[in-house]
Amino acid sequence: MGKRQAVSKKPFELVVDEQGATVLRVCRAVLGVHDADDAWSDTFLAALQAYPDLPQEANVQAWLVTIAHRKCIDHLRAGSRRALPMDSPPEHASNLGLPGEDHTELLDAVTHLPPKQRQAVAYHYLAGLPYKDIAVMLGGTPEAARRAGADGVKALRSALAGPSALVDGPELAHSLPKGEIR
């Protein structure tokens, strides 16, 4: 970790070992589980290409998240060009590729956030970037980035707490035999 060892750059395979999971989480949070795979591939291929020129003292994780950010934006734009809006996925779409897992609520909630909130939450909480760096990536002030992160978390919490509270009423009503309600 010291300066002395930093003289030689580690093999890129180790970078994938150390950062692959974090970058995939970030891509999933920003794009949803489906497009995340393509964004991850684009990110690491671009990173491999540029790796020899990366300054020795650079923060590798921040560098990768910045590349992932740009690749995710490409996918978000391509997504809107294909007229497949991220904000209204067909029901259960985000459950594909996760057989047997019951995580649809969180994943749905994430895809319903505005992109900036998703990005701020992903870069700050999953990648551990400070809001001043996130502000540079998103454009705007650190304060605005911090607010987007906080709003995103708040929205996720209420989305996860909300449905069960809402669902109880109607479901009960449906389960009762028709005649007895009135």
């Binding site: 999971a21 995939l24 989480r25 999933r28 949070a29 589980v33 795979d37 590729g97 996760l98 897992e101 995580h103 609520e105 969180l106 994943l107 994430v110 939450v121 909480y125 999953l126 978390v153 996720l156 919490r157 996860l160």
Partner: peptide
Amino acid sequence: VLSLLEPLDAGLEPA
């Protein structure tokens, strides 16, 4: 928040 986001890890290793 990290535990809130844990569902993002579903199927992470095989992926």
